[in-house]
């Protein structure tokens, strides 16, 4: 367990009545990628903001290498924060268009003066540009002179500047062309091997998450409903929500169309301001029994689920063998 670099326990974030994140426990080990999937509004992005300190948790703990971030103050907090950085979703809005690329990537060094000696700033920035596959001579250019994929590389370079161990990627490729997505994913994988980074990879694109993740956590209405290594989640999903989510992935091979069992969910996602009692998924679940409204299922290994699943009736159902 000593190689756990990031851990949350009972992490909660409420915006007034809205329970955006409502008790999330997760662990991230050194050098591993944890994929977090779920539909829009399930709390993925709020979780990312909590982890990097853009939002303050309502309750629970975030431990980075054993230090609880909510207990740290001042210099200790700044040092702990350096260890966990984020790559943002939209490369068009996440770079200040009035700053040069050199100033954008070098800004972490201006804020943390001890990270790099002042005379070495330009060299450090150029090394970062080189590391993410951009021309080191382009440091005097402005963001609008780069393509979307290149701009996302700039965002990655900025996140790497302080040599963090953990990087939270909040939908890092969803704003990019499909042809560019693979390049950025490969870059992230290469950097992970090279620098020993740990990733929290948040996405709604299940095939991207499958490709990059070692473990996957499925979120629904602010809670994790199923978690396990990516083989377990994709090949042997046991939670009905995960099964429905996976069955909705489009299949590229036309011969296989219609052979899979599609699970059509009825109804909308309930409001996170007043989530259903008991199991939160019961309002859309075809397996729901009267007891589901009373007893909230905990995320645990069950008789028919070899990995943690938050469903009283969890059982393996193969929904997408060919995906």
């Amino acid at each position: 367990m000593s190689d756990v670099v990031l851990e949350t326990r009972g992490l909660v974030k409420h915006f007034g009545a809205v329970r955006a994140v409502d008790g999330v426990d997760l662990q991230l080990r050194r050098g591993e990628t944890l994929g977090v999937v779920g539909e829009s509004g399930c709390g993925k992005s709020t979780l990312a903001k909590l982890l990097v300190g853009l939002e303050k948790p309502t309750g629970g703990e975030i431990r980075v290498r054993g230090d609880d971030l909510s207990r740290l103050r001042g210099g200790g907090l700044r040092r702990a924060r350096r260890n966990i950085q984020m790559v943002m979703q939209d490369p068009y809005t996440s770079l200040n268009s009035r700053m040069t690329v050199g100033d954008i990537i070098g800004e972490p060094y201006d804020i943390h003066r001890d990270a790099v000696p002042h005379t070495g700033r330009q060299r450090a920035v150029q090394e970062l540009l080189d590391l993410v596959g951009l021309n080191p001579d382009h440091l005097n250019r402005y963001p609008h002179q780069f393509s979307g994929g290149q701009r996302q590389r700039i965002g990655i370079a900025r996140a790497l500047a302080l040599r963090p161990e953990i990087i939270v990627c909040d939908e890092p490729v969803s704003a990019l062309d499909v042809s560019i997505q693979a390049q950025v994913i490969n870059l992230l994988e290469g950097l992970q091997r090279q620098l020993g980074l740990s990733y929290i990879f948040i996405a709604h694109d299940l095939s991207v998450v499958r490709h990059i993740s070692d473990r996957v956590a499925v979120m629904y209405l602010g809670k994790i409903v199923e978690t396990g290594n990516h083989m377990a989640i994709y090949d042997q999903p046991t939670h009905p929500y995960t099964q429905a989510l996976l069955s909705a992935v489009p299949v590229p091979d036309p011969r296989l169309r219609g052979r899979r069992d599609h699970i059509m969910l009825t109804g909308d996602v309930p409001s996170p301001a007043s989530p259903p009692s008991g199991c939160r998924f019961r309002t859309r679940c075809w397996k729901a029994q009267p007891g589901c409204a009373e007893h909230e299922p905990t995320l645990e290994i069950r008789e028919r689920s070899p990995h943690p699943s938050a469903c009283h009736y969890a059982e393996v159902r193969d929904v997408m063998r060919r995906f």
């Binding site: 853009l54 996440s94 943390h112």
Partner: peptide, 17 residues
């Protein structure tokens, strides 16, 4: 509320910056 401001805040930038 732009993303680049959030990005700078995440890096630890103070109100003046």
């Amino acid at each position: 509320n732009q993303d680049y401001v959030a990005a700078a805040r995440m890096l630890g930038a103070g109100p003046g910056r």
